[in-house]
Design a protein around this nucleic acid. Structure first.
Length: 555
RNA sequence: UGACCUAUGGUGUAAUGGUAACACUGCAGAUUUUGAUUCUGCCUUUCUAGGUUCGAAUCCUAGUAGGUCAACCA
């Protein structure tokens, strides 16, 4: 029996609308502005919009809100399409607000003819000054009373390019004393002699968001237009335009955007990080963009699961980034092949293992998935193990390697540390161990039980690789709360590059983007910077580490 | 000195007038050839004050707190 999951408030609205026969099917849209890359906040919106349509039998349009040519570029359009597809969604139609420029222009003319719009010659400063404040009403200016004929002529001239940028605007004529600031004669068209990424130089006037978005929804017969909370006050204007234009009544609903701990989700600031080279690009694996988390090794399934788990509501939230990490671990644990990789090597010589001898051992690829099969791993007299897996003076409950102590080498033998060799500075350089020949994995007759199991790589067969370890980009939990420059909060240790790393030979076959669990250290993904001679892996996320926590508590 | 939105464990989200629950986190334990995974148990919750009602997290009023609104951005 599938337990019935409760509905979020948007699903409730849709179900009610469907039940009451308001609609027979629904249409939603995802409306990004192509002025940056999509991030996890957009993923929430994508999952919501596409998810709703999927669940209730409708469709979702991908509509680029490209009404501001100075910030928008084709590069962004392509990345957005890639990201939506990667997340696993298929849009019904690829559309652009710029497709509607003529219709939108005609709508503006309709408004003028109804006496509901006028051309204003004021500067932006004057308009701002006349706007009043939230507690003080605005004031009318002389342009407000221009005749319909004059407005029509002026607006035609605006379109014809007879004025310079900023010289005139078209404003809706609503009410300068309206309690809602957005209803105080909002600017609906402005002059921009700028090249548009799709319409080229065909237009020199462009509609504002409030005069483009709702009408675009209406043209596409979007039933449920879902946006974030900061647009709540825009809804009144959204409805006003639809009513005065007497067009299809789409409706706007608002939800709270995603905020995440230690994460900055503002496109503008992310752009700044890219431009000022604090990161290597929009897809730097430390970024919260979808192209970055993809490169880092996150799966689309885990992002969708995350969006499902965080829910949808109308109150401000701050999601623990640990939940995202939980989701990706949960998925990667099920699907990723295990490999042994030593990130910080220390050499072990097995003194009672014959020189020149080699054995081929077998290890399962994924204990969570029998169909994943197994692989061969070469074993020999000299090995690398993790420096962390040896302590000369171990604390209580440390069940890895220490002088006189035994551990099992994963899928191989039990070894015992007999001697510690140090260099002149007293640093441990080599461990001399003996192995128990009867303790071979799968045919262990030694009767010895050891608690610790560690990973290892045969020196003679080791594959050198580069590994990039990522930590949170920011050190401050709630980046919405800061008052100083957000760059002051950057984590200087958000990237650590390890170049003295050895992997088992099987990793050589890895394909770009392929994800693995490096046993006991974390999940990793082969990076696009890899070449035939240099393999590079990104750490997606560490494994949960109870021992590290234990150590921290002791400290 | 306004309007609008919001208020449930540490963090999210449910409960739709009838026993406050689920996930993450945290803590404790079992299993484990990954100190992973898995499994078990535990901790912790209705902003305040009134009102309506047999009964309120839920409805009403007021207060308080947080958010939003004064771009020719979206």
């Amino acid at each position: 029996m599938a337990d019935e999951k409760s509905l979020n408030f948007l699903e409730e609205i849709v179900e009610t609308d469907l039940k009451e026969g308001k609609y027979t099917s629904i249409a939603t849209r995802f409306p990004p502005e192509p002025n940056g890359y999509l991030h996890l906040g957009h993923a929430k919106s994508i999952c919501l919009n596409f998810g709703l349509a999927q669940k209730y039998g409708g469709y979702t349009n991908l509509r680029f809100d490209d009404t501001n040519p100075v910030t928008e570029e084709t590069e962004y359009v392509e990345s957005i399409k890639d990201d939506v597809r990667w997340l696993g969604f298929q849009w019904a139609n690829e559309l652009y607000a710029s497709d509607y420029f003529q219709q939108l222009y005609d709508f503006a003319v309709v408004l003028i003819k109804k006496g509901l719009a006028y051309v204003d010659d004021s500067t932006s400063e004057e308009i701002a000054a006349q706007k009043g404040t939230p507690t003080r009403p605005g004031t009318n200016n002389i342009y407000r009373d221009r005749s319909i004929e004059e407005n029509l002529t002026l607006f035609t001239n605006m379109k014809a390019g007879k004025y310079k940028d900023g010289e005139k605007v078209l404003r809706a004529k609503i009410d300068m004393a309206h309690i809602n600031m957005l209803m105080r004669d909002p600017v609906i068209y402005r002059i921009k002699h700028a090249h548009h990424h799709r319409t080229g130089d065909a237009w020199c006037i462009y509609p504002m968001y409030d005069f483009a978005h709702g009408q675009s929804d209406s043209i596409e017969k979007i039933t449920h237009s879902i946006c974030t909370l900061e647009f709540v006050p825009h809804r009144e204007l959204y409805d006003w335009c639809i009513e005065k234009l007497e067009i299809y009544p789409s409706h706007q609903y608002e939800f709270a955007r995603l905020n995440m701990t230690y994460t900055m989700m503002s496109k503008r600031k992310l752009l700044q990080l890219v431009n000022e080279k604090h990161v290597s690009g929009w897809d730097d694996p430390r970024m919260p963009t979808l192209s970055a988390v993809r490169r880092r090794g996150y799966t689309p399934e885990s992002i969708r699961e995350f969006c499902d788990k965080i829910g949808v509501a109308k109150r401000e939230n701050l999601i623990d980034i640990g939940l995202l990490e939980f989701c990706v671990r949960e998925h990667l644990n099920k699907i990723s092949l295990r490999r042994m990789v030593v990130l910080d090597p220390i050499k072990v010589v097995i003194t009672n293992y014959p020189e020149g001898k080699e054995e081929i051992l077998t290890s399962e690829n994924n204990p969570e998935d029998e169909t994943a099969g197994s692989r061969s791993i070469p074993f020999s007299r000299e090995l690398y193990i993790e420096a962390d897996d040896f302590m000369e003076v171990p604390p209580k409950k440390y069940f890895r390697l220490a002088p006189g102590q035994m551990v099992r080498l994963k899928s191989a033998y039990i070894i015992k540390c007999e001697e510690v060799i140090k260099n002149a500075e007293g640093k441990v350089t080599e461990l001399r161990c003996t192995y128990v020949p009867e303790s071979k994995s799968g045919s262990d007759t030694s009767g010895i039980h050891v608690k610790g199991v560690i990973h290892w790589v045969s020196v003679a067969h080791a594959l050198p690789i580069e590994v990039r370890l990522y930590d949170r980009l920011f050190l401050t939990e709630d980046m919405n709360r800061i008052e100083d420059d957000f760059k002051n909060h950057l984590n200087p240790e958000s990237l650590k590059v390890l170049t003295n790393v050895y992997a088992e030979p099987a990793l050589k076959e890895a394909k770009e983007g392929e994800r693995f669990q490096f046993m006991r250290t974390g999940y990793f993904c082969k990076d696009k910077d890899s070449t035939s001679t240099k393999l590079v892996f990104n750490r997606t996320v560490t494994l949960k580490d109870m021992w590290a926590k234990e150590v921290r508590k002791g400290a």
